[in-house]
Design a binder for these strands. Sequence first.
DNA 1: ATCATCGCTATTGTATACAAACACCCCTCG
DNA 2: CGAGGGGTGTTTGTATACAATAGCGATGAT
Lengths: 223, 223
Amino acid sequence: MATTGSISKASERAYQAIRALILSGSVAPGSPLTEEALADIVGVSRTPVREALRRLESELYITRSGGTRLFVANWSHDDIAEMFTLRAMLEAHAAARAATRITAAALAELAAINARITKAVSHGSDSGPDIAAFLTENRRFHEVIIDQSGSPRLAAILATLVEQPVVRRTAARYSAQELARSAHEHSQLIQAFNARDAEWARSIMTAHIRRAFHAFSTAPPAK
Amino acid sequence: MATTGSISKASERAYQAIRALILSGSVAPGSPLTEEALADIVGVSRTPVREALRRLESELYITRSGGTRLFVANWSHDDIAEMFTLRAMLEAHAAARAATRITAAALAELAAINARITKAVSHGSDSGPDIAAFLTENRRFHEVIIDQSGSPRLAAILATLVEQPVVRRTAARYSAQELARSAHEHSQLIQAFNARDAEWARSIMTAHIRRAFHAFSTAPPAK
DNA sequence: ATCATCGCTATTGTATACAAACACCCCTCG
DNA sequence: CGAGGGGTGTTTGTATACAATAGCGATGAT
């Protein structure tokens, strides 16, 4: 899982660290950020911090006031709703593209992943669904589809739209039935891919993500 | 008082300059880029060049090979087709959102802009349509709509998708009739906004951009 | 008392120096 | 003759020093 290519690099560490600070709520929305303070926290110099900040700014995690001062962005419920809407639109498009391009190997991988998801969410003898496993495999499932869509641009846009903390909060709110339904929707996607039916795949993916949005909306605030 | 904008900033100049080099074809797709050479060309140090390159990389103008070396990305016709498809989807969404949010002032501005567009493309006594004016006003027209959609995230994504060189090439290929049809489509959009009809606006915008794509596709290669 | 103006300070923007990593090439050895 | 290994030079990554600038407060005038 080479999700983070260069984790040893200071600029990448800075990006991850600052992003984590914001998403965890450790720094309140609206509070000012200074490059030097962040550099101290992360333990690197201002140079990699600046690169991380530019990236976070382009992803709307932080905003500039007056052209210079940096502040933690304040994501409203409407902002998150818009992210879900865009994600639904774009990831459904990715699914439609993937339907006509997917390789046999990728199809097999999707099936294998979803088998693991099904296993993770079916309460066996133990204490209940394995949310951690669900999140890992679910993420991989969606990654494979985006990859198979063959559009690096789409992948780049979606990367800024799919926030794992949001996904986690959504999954944590899912009931066992809802988790199972997620797995079922995945299997329907696989059927659509098998049939090479782009519009079928698009519809399933749209529904899949919009349902996630509504589960998220009923979840309590993060903090 | 009057902010000079970020144009005077070295990092912004570097971004514009390098982007222009790539879009104009001055540096061939696939050719390697070194930070120092670019710094010399732009006339700034490597630091702002690096910031510009990070941004250009996130916008897929350049790619990294082996994690470090930089190359000019090679946009195929398929890549551009995909950009048009995504742009159509997202800008149509922007139009739909704008339909229910647009202010009276913005509506009036759209009407004024489109009046100027109509004037620019109607061949009066002079030598023909004023393409430069068309491009300026057309750009502004679309900017107002994206702005009125009230989604900074959508605006940020679209900014990376709407390439003025591509638009210019498209417009240069338009016949006088097609330019007039563009203005007519704009006026239909204004009608949809007046009616606060989101789906009408979405449809018009989709058609507007897809037609532009097909005009672009029949245009000769850039160089 | 309120407002404008001036100057200081905190913070960002840029350049440069240095360190590390990678690629390439040559040389040696099997 | 081919393959592997190290050396070398180029390129990127990071830190630090310095310059510029925006914000903020003090100070004084009206």
